[in-house]
């Protein structure tokens, strides 16, 4: 594979992410990693459900009383939108339109940062209510589940930013196309996990 080979929209393959053996390996490997991540989150969800509302006797916090849907709903919408914008970015990647791809990735990153900011605000709010990490088994399970997702968001954002800066000058090639593709795939995965968190933690929490 020649990193210096220049492509045009015409010579650019339909599936640049799997056009080389390295790309193919990354593609399969990353899907497998996502399988492992799925089991990871499944373990966290199972633990959360087992420990939901469990705490020292007389604990005042319950999921029904603590969580408020409006903010979380806004966060959900923002993250879902960012998933859509990353799809646009990949659309332009496949069309070998580097500038448009960068622009859409930029929007994705901004939305992701907003999400992260709101999550930090939310956590901060709970801590001030007295619902800290060490407060109860419930709080530990909540923060570790949602916090692990937050850490994934942070990692995804760093990944996007690093890719955008590193490749800003040299455009798309066979070497970095799979990387962009996988970062976007990772971003979708994070989004799907959030949909589950929204449902299992917040919706089911508020409803009871």
């Amino acid at each position: 594979m020649d990193i210096n080979k220049r492509y045009t929209a015409q010579s650019w393959p339909d599936h640049p992410e799997t056009a080389t053996l390295e790309g193919k390996n990354k593609f399969v490997g990353f899907w497998l990693l996502l399988a492992a991540e799925t089991v990871t989150f499944a373990s966290l969800f199972a633990t959360y459900l087992a420990l939901k509302d469990k705490g020292p006797s007389g604990m005042e916090f319950t999921a029904a009383g603590l969580f408020e849907l409006p903010l979380v709903f806004a966060m959900t919408m923002i993250l879902l939108t960012s998933s859509l914008t990353s799809v646009y970015a990949m659309y332009h990647m496949k069309n070998h339109n580097f500038k448009a791809m960068q622009a859409w990735l930029g929007i994705t990153v901004l939305l992701g940062l907003t999400f992260l900011g709101l999550e930090i605000y939310e956590f901060n709010h709970y801590v001030h209510l007295g619902f800290g990490f060490t407060h109860s088994a419930f709080s530990s399970a909540f923060y570790v589940l949602v916090g692990t997702h937050g850490a994934h968001v942070l990692f995804g954002l760093s990944w996007f930013i690093a890719l955008m800066i590193r490749n800003s000058k040299r455009g798309l090639n066979m070497y970095n196309a799979p990387k962009f593709y996988l970062a976007a795939l990772y971003w979708h995965f994070i989004d799907v996990v959030w949909v589950f968190i929204f449902t299992v933690v917040y919706l089911m929490g508020v409803i009871g």
Binding site: T40, T47, K54, M59, F133, T134
Partner: peptide, 26 residues
Amino acid sequence: PPLTIGLFFMIFDRLFDSNFFVVEMG
């Protein structure tokens, strides 16, 4: 992954005072 998660809980409980396995705290 399940082992890693279990070990994380263990590390958090022992080193950062969380309560996954602390019966009195739920």
